[in-house]
Simulated scan of single mutants.
Amino acid sequence: MTEHSSLYLKLLGETAPIRWEELQPFFARGALLWVHGSLDLVEVALAVAEDNRDKVTGWLTSGELGKVEENRAGDLLARDPQLWAVVVAPWVLVQERAGSEASGENA
């Protein structure tokens, strides 16, 4: 069994379901980061919070982490899927819940 840091557990406790409608102001400010479904949302939030540049840079480079683009925002508005979010100021990290992502959607 893996032991998690107290910060990981704190972030896990602050992770919550949210609707796209509630995230739109953060998108408009450019403060919304999309986390690919293959990643652990809380692990990514922890790396951002701890300024773990190696991990964050790797995810940014691979496209598994990045700012929400307009085409994705339009898709989320149209579909209104179940999302999870956690705040790591100044960012809000968001991820689509497993099983609700559109097939073939990689935007």
Rank of each mutant, 00 (worst) to 15 (best):
residue 47 A to S: 11
residue 46 L to W: 00
residue 83 L to K: 05
residue 73 A to Y: 06
residue 99 G to I: 03
residue 30 G to F: 05
residue 100 S to D: 14
residue 79 R to A: 07
residue 55 K to Y: 06
residue 33 L to D: 01
residue 74 G to L: 09
residue 96 E to K: 08
residue 31 A to G: 06
residue 37 G to K: 07
residue 48 V to E: 10
residue 88 V to L: 06
residue 39 L to H: 01
residue 23 L to H: 01
residue 36 H to E: 15
residue 92 V to P: 03
residue 15 T to N: 05
residue 29 R to Q: 14
residue 36 H to N: 15
residue 5 S to L: 05
residue 95 Q to S: 10
residue 71 N to D: 13
residue 8 Y to D: 04
residue 61 T to P: 04
residue 58 G to M: 10
residue 107 A to G: 06
residue 74 G to P: 03
residue 48 V to H: 05
residue 49 A to D: 09
residue 96 E to D: 11
residue 52 N to F: 06
residue 10 K to V: 11
residue 52 N to P: 04
residue 77 L to K: 12
residue 76 L to H: 01
residue 16 A to R: 15
residue 74 G to A: 08
residue 11 L to W: 03
residue 14 E to Y: 01
residue 14 E to N: 10
residue 10 K to P: 00
residue 80 D to N: 14
residue 77 L to A: 12
residue 106 N to R: 11
residue 50 E to Y: 08
residue 66 G to W: 02
residue 22 E to V: 10
residue 25 P to S: 04
residue 45 A to E: 05
residue 27 F to M: 05
residue 11 L to Q: 04
residue 19 R to F: 03
residue 41 L to S: 02
residue 40 D to A: 13
residue 93 L to V: 10
residue 17 P to M: 00
residue 53 R to Y: 08
residue 66 G to Y: 00
residue 91 W to M: 08
residue 40 D to I: 12
residue 11 L to P: 02
residue 104 G to W: 04
residue 36 H to A: 15
residue 24 Q to I: 10
residue 33 L to M: 10
residue 53 R to L: 15
residue 68 V to K: 00
residue 44 V to L: 08
residue 66 G to I: 01
